[in-house]
Design a protein around this nucleic acid. Structure first.
Length: 291
DNA sequence: ACCCAGGGTGACG
DNA sequence: CGTCACCATGGG
């Protein structure tokens, strides 16, 4: 169900009118790791470019972005074609999701770059968000390209080729810990022809299975990559917080991942992953579902 | 000192 | 098929 947004381009700024996105909740709900607060807005690095975004009332501004870059990249990055009001309306039967919407409205599930998302979520295993952000920043500083925007220095996330130069010791020095060899192995497979782009066109289960061939990628990490970078809105990452919610709030008893996923699919349907993002942020911020 | 963090791997039944 | 110790690091 595509929606048509209205835009206006002024120089290197694109404005999108009447868009129901909350940038704070979207960029800090644990799906992306490189965005920072920047005055009234946010500064990030997407597709190797510095991007600044800001909400001005119901209008969203994307800075350092012309009309072409917007249509080719950023509109999809922010998932602007999708009608979120229709999707969230489909979840209103659920009390906990309603509470999630009230706590943090306007979350959109991003379509990030697959390689960066893959490496980011390999790092995420048994880790915390603050340290995940730090490690990704260190990797970008050491293996990405140094660039500048408005006198502000920033680093692109490295390409497969650039990250191929990193040794286990290099990545350990970035703070990756025991995940360093996983990253080296995965990057070498990608450099050796493993086709990450092709996975986006596969059926969900096949795509997930393929991703799990990579070191450091299990079902949860695969689901994060599928949901946050490849548009699989049915992918439902099962992390410790979400599992606690399913058990202790929804009252679903089975501990088996595949049975939990069956339950959430039956409950939330084809866009379950979007429900997951709202739930995750809500329960984590409020420390709900513990014990 | 112990437990936890957006888990996964490999070994062992 | 399931279980489980272990993994590097920093914060509570």
């Amino acid at each position: 169900m595509d929606i048509k947004y209205k835009t206006e381009t002024i120089g290197e700024k694109v404005y999108i009118d009447d868009i129901d996105i909350n940038l704070e909740n979207t960029l800090f709900s644990g799906q992306a790791f490189r965005w920072k607060h920047d005055g009234k807005g946010f500064f990030g690095v997407c597709f190797g470019e510095a991007i600044r975004v800001e909400k001005q009332g119901n209008r969203m501004m994307i800075e350092n972005c012309n009309a072409e870059f917007f249509e080719n990249k950023m509109a999809h990055y922010f998932d602007l074609c999708k009608d979120y009001s229709e999707i969230t309306k489909g979840f209103e039967f659920d009390e906990i999701l309603n509470a999630s919407f009230e706590f943090a409205p306007g979350i959109r599930v991003l379509n990030q770059e697959p390689f960066e998302t893959l490496i980011s979520f390999i790092i995420s295993a048994n880790n915390n968000i603050k340290r995940i952000r730090l490690i990704i920043e260190n990797i970008s500083k050491n293996f990405g390209q140094k660039k500048e925007y408005n006198g502000q220095e920033f680093f692109s996330f490295p390409s497969v080729e650039e990250l191929s130069k990193a040794t286990e010791a290099d990545l350990a020095a970035c703070g990756a810990g025991y995940r360093a060899p996983y990253i080296v192995d995965t990057v070498s497979k990608l450099a050796d022809g493993f086709d990450l782009e092709a996975i986006g066109n596969m059926p969900y289960l096949e795509a997930r299975k393929k991703l799990c061939e990579l070191k450091g990628v299990g079902k949860k990490v695969a689901d994060c990559v599928l949901l946050y970078s490849m548009g699989f809105t049915n992918a439902f990452p099962l992390d410790v917080w979400i599992k606690r919610v399913v058990h202790n709030i929804y009252g679903f008893e089975s501990e088996k991942d595949e049975e939990i996923l069956g339950f959430v699919e039956d409950t939330f349907g084809e866009h379950a992953g979007i429900a997951q993002q709202y739930l995750f942020y809500y329960v984590k911020q409020n420390k709900l579902g513990i014990k």
